[in-house]
Amino acid sequence: MLLIPCPYCGERAENEFSYGGEAHKPRPEVPEEISDATWADYVFLQKNTKGTYYERWIHSHGCRRWFNLVRDTLTHEIHGAYRMGEAPPKVDEKTYV
């Protein structure tokens, strides 16, 4: 079970949290104006990086705030957590093959 640093509550066990997928993937401003392919990409496709990944979590059994996490999806190493709207921490990004 991961130990997740909620930016509001501090480090808590993973079972207090829920996962929300890729971060920094804003909803298109005017969906009507974009192509089917771009929309499908937004709705259905996530980067799913093997390596450093920017992702959203919600502290659902805690402060109920959504926040972002930088996590290595292979090693589960957590490089930092930051609030919505904040800039991500500087991370030495890695990807694995």
Partner: peptide
């Protein structure tokens, strides 16, 4: 509720 909070907190703050 999680769905609504997600949009409120992440898309439309």
């Amino acid at each position: 509720l999680a769905h609504l909070e997600e949009y409120l907190q992440t898309e439309w703050p």
